[in-house]
Amino acid sequence: MNLLQFLSGRLAKGVLTLLAIAVLNFFLIRAAPGDPAQVLAGEAGAADAVLLEQLRERFGLNEPLLTQLWIYLKGYMTLDLGFSYRQQQPVLALVLDRLPATLLLTGAAFLISLVLGTAMGALAARRAGKWSDSLITALALIFYATPLFWVALMSQIVFALKLGIVPNVGYETIGANYTGLARALDIGRHLVLPALTLGLFFTALYARMMRASMLEVAGADFVKTARAKGVSPPRVWRRHVARNAILPVVTLAGLQAGQLVGGAVLTETVFAWPGIGRLMFDALVQRDYSVLLGVFFVSSAMVVGFNILTDLIYRIADPRIEAGA
């Protein structure tokens, strides 16, 4: 099977998965109590039947459910994610407006955790049983076992309030109107706390995964063979163990890359980060159906995309896969 066939096959499967998710989400969210018209009218502190009717008509909620589903799916076929009447904007515009912030945050967290995590894991595996192994393992466990929002709040108090080194919330200094490098630096300063907070948890996962995987590979026959052949120990670790141990980590990375979007809900809330995790949560508590479905769609599409990417990397990193696929 060549690469093109493989890709088109995976893409077709991905599209089907996304379609199924879209339908499931559509019914899921309709099962929740309340509707967007009620929420909007309720928040105004003065709802009456006329207003509710006006809003429902406007939101298209008076159509039969299946008609609504059809309209929604038809739109998705042409990448039209619908319109948010609550916010008076197309969903795609809302999502695209917020996506860069999320990608920046999760991307940074992803890099931090991947680099730090695999390095820690590899180090621990090489020193298995020594005190540095215990230290790293303990550190990873601490990262893993502390509730994320707690870390988020504590870091704000310590680093923003007490030490005053970095800002506590937001994406950039509002009203400063920085441009160019100054703006990039400003955003960078704002990025530090949320990215570290979000990254810590995944660092722990990668560290543990890498350590376990390396120890497993270290016991494998081909490594023993390499050792027996007299390959120098550092070379064994680098060329044989680390290279093969990275595969499960790649899988995890593929999975996590997608999950980072969903996992950013808490981080984005606590740090007032204007990304799509918060957009999703707000849309949920406002029953802004079209926005909620749009965010779910985009983040699911990202997971699918990353999965395909992972498979590709797998094929490239490990030629053995091809025979089995």
Partner: peptide, 20 residues
């Protein structure tokens, strides 16, 4: 006037305290 949107109450308090 800049109306800032900060979803978490504790973070809002810190934002006031740090002069944001």
């Amino acid at each position: 006037i800049y109306w800032q949107i900060i979803p978490d109450a504790a973070a809002r308090a810190v934002a006031y305290e740090t002069g944001k």
